[in-house]
Design a protein around this nucleic acid. Structure first.
Lengths: 217, 217
DNA sequence: CATATCATTGAACGGTCGTTCAATTCGTGT
DNA sequence: ACACGAATTGAACGACCGTTCAATGATATG
């Protein structure tokens, strides 16, 4: 029944590995890594569970391969995200590839599991954002800051945190951060208040002195 | 003649259930719910695994009990968080109870697993924040907004997202959101850029560019 | 056609999981 | 002292896990 497969020796059989990897990314993104069994991935990819181990060595190695693929996929789209303007910061970065595995959703799920690949990706993402924002300051688009790197880092954390908590954000505001980025209306309920806060600020007068607001008086 | 007589075992045995619940919260917060076995909880609490099931019915029921306890513990401390000022928003809310189980860390872990208790807690938290910020607008402390509820929601999402991603935030900036709240220096690297952005804003002028969410003003 | 090669499979193994259950301890009322 | 019920235990069960391994199927080459 599988007429689609291949004249495949060692050249084209990569489609099998890709199919496995994409199925893994999809399931990892949906239910998390721990809750996804190798058998479930095998069923989704249409192969035997043992083949996954034979190809990738172990479930953990497969997960690493998924991390690397997602990190690479997002790195390719990075410039697009950067061009979205400094307001949204790195949130716009995870642009979904058409027809590909759910990269953004995977990122949202595995940001908390903490893999080396994702951590490294965040680091370079913040570095790029800091550099980009520094250019914005020089060109007069952004206000200068006491904490150039800290500002970029916190902004990135906020954006990524909103992505991680997309489920709660959608329940609260209706904004779906996982929707197609082509649809601005889907995330308007998020970008509206966000841009407003980041442009005007929220305090009517500059808060003098004490940060952190420990002692109000 | 004594309510204590029989309760030496049936009234005071709550200490056993409390010990189990606290151990569960600690381990759930550390390694996540899925990665924590009933046997590990039992070992940490100094009881047999079967006792946990006998007391709570199932692991899932124990998790629900943990959710309820954490939600209640944070609700009690809510006023403290509110008094921390509107800048940090609901981040200050999860004030750790001294000597108790790691409530904040538990919240950071289970925010993404999505339990009904935690979701309901977030909803009321945002409601309170919106109400509190509305008062701030009336009293002149905060700027008015086009999206009163959305602003509170996004601010809450940012704060909770930063809590969820505390590991990355600490690696990036050194700020430890899980440290004792008595130590402002531990989170200064976060509160500094955060308050700066939320008071002054980051754009020198209203954004002329065309990001994803831009439409009519 | 024969054969070596390699992707692929199905069955099985050891381990851990949540949970069940009979048995045992222990505090207490009579 | 005795019995009873609650608290607690240890052993076991079935299910599922990731992984191993010998066997199978297909294919290109001699």
């Amino acid at each position: 029944m599988n007429m689609r497969s291949k004249s495949a020796r060692s050249g084209d059989d990569r489609s099998t590995e890709i199919r496995i990897r994409d199925a893994a990314i999809t399931l990892f993104a949906e239910h998390g890594v721990a809750a996804t069994s190798v058998r479930a991935i095998a069923a989704a990819a249409g192969v035997a569970p043992s083949l996954i181990i034979h190809r990738y060595g172990s479930k953990e190695a497969l997960r690493t391969a998924c991390d690397e693929y997602v990190a690479e996929a997002l790195r390719e789209r990075k410039s697009e995200g950067m061009r979205s303007g400094p307001l949204l910061g790195p949130l716009a970065t995870p642009h979904e590839a058409r027809g590909g595995p759910p990269v953004r959703r995977y990122l949202a799920r595995t940001l908390i599991d903490g893999s080396p690949q994702v951590s490294a990706m965040i680091d370079t993402l913040v570095d790029d954002a800091a550099r980009y924002m520094a250019e914005g300051v020089e060109s007069g688009l952004l206000k200068p800051t006491e904490h150039p790197y800290g500002r970029a880092a916190v902004l990135a954390i906020w954006s990524l945190g909103a992505l991680v908590l997309h489920e709660h954000l959608e329940r609260l505001t209706g904004a779906d951060l996982l929707a197609d980025q082509d649809d601005p209306a889907a995330i308007a309920a998020y970008t509206g208040p966000a841009t407003e806060m980041l442009t005007r600020g929220i305090t009517a007068e500059p808060d003098p002195g004490t940060p952190a607001g420990q002692e109000k008086e």
